[in-house]
């Protein structure tokens, strides 16, 4: 571990917050194409609902398109079309040959084709959301396909999921712990999930949310705006105080955010 890396993954050691305003990650390279954000996670964790919420929140602000990788070709794409959150011309479904993780990680060609077809058909885009099919905790996106990835788990999957870790929980650029409104019903301890996520993820941000209570997934949408702004070379110049790092927010569960000054979600800086 590098000396300047003051974080420790050991749960027994108190977790150290990074300096506010210091982004622990190198900035995304400036892109001359749409930012691609992967959204993965286990079956039923709410990926499609999150995509729908992000479309609601962002479709009026960003030039947006969605690629879905459901195990069944058009299931998720149809859900989005029915939900009416995005014009159907902005949604493509990719067949995955029974292997959703292969299509997003090992052989990304069909997804790259889908992204390029959307760009060809729609003109320049700001953001492409690539939704994986429901898979297991090891399924992550190839860096050849996406620039950033969100991993979605839900409290109903058990509060042990963050502790179990796996590449999705541990390395995703953003971990979303979904359906917090169900926590009392399923006996999930959000504090335990928060502690375990911190231990697993170091400085990487985690957002607790309930789309039932926040249909626009405000905190995640803010994070996405931030990523898009960074890729455009915006946001970094004035990033002092912009706490990309270690957001630890708890949106929606009680109708408001627990974010404090140092722990607020990423600032949606400079996005049209």
């Amino acid at each position: 571990m590098r000396a300047d890396h003051a974080y420790d993954h050991d749960e027994t050691v108190p977790h150290t917050h990074p300096e506010p305003g210091v982004d622990p990650h190198p900035p995304l390279p400036q892109l001359d194409r749409a930012v691609r954000i992967g959204i993965g996670g286990p079956v039923g964790s709410g990926k499609t609902a999150l995509v729908a919420a992000l479309c609601r929140a962002l479709a009026g602000q960003l030039r947006l398109a969605v690629v879905t990788n459901d195990i069944y070709t058009t299931e998720d794409a149809d859900f989005l079309k029915r939900a009416g959150v995005l014009d159907s011309a902005r949604i493509r479904a990719v067949e995955t040959g029974c292997c959703p993780h292969t299509a997003i990680r090992d052989d990304i060609s069909a997804n790259l084709d889908a992204v390029e077809e959307l760009e060809d058909a729609l003109g320049p885009l700001d953001l492409v959301l690539v939704e994986s099919g429901g898979d297991n905790l090891t399924a992550t996106f190839s860096k050849g396909l996406v620039d950033q990835q969100i991993f979605v788990v839900d409290v109903a999957g058990g509060d042990k999921v963050p502790r179990k870790g796996g590449p999705g929980v541990t390395t995703a650029d953003l971990l979303v712990i979904n359906k917090t409104d169900l926590a009392p019903l399923v006996g999930a301890d959000l504090a335990v999930m928060d502690r375990d996520a911190r231990a697993r993820r170091g400085t990487l941000p985690t957002i607790f949310q309930s789309i039932a209570q926040d249909p626009h997934a405000s905190q995640v949408a803010a994070w996405v705006r931030h990523v898009v702004a960074h890729s455009r070379g915006l946001g970094h110049a004035g990033a002092q105080g912009d706490s990309h790092a270690h957001s630890r927010t708890h949106a929606g569960a009680e109708g408001h955010s627990h974010a404090d000054a140092q722990d607020r979600g990423p600032a949606p800086a400079g996005v049209r």
Partner: peptide, 11 residues
């Protein structure tokens, strides 16, 4: 078969 040329999605 692991050469990433899209074949896995075709039966």
């Amino acid at each position: 078969g692991r050469f990433p040329s899209g074949g896995h999605a075709h039966s």
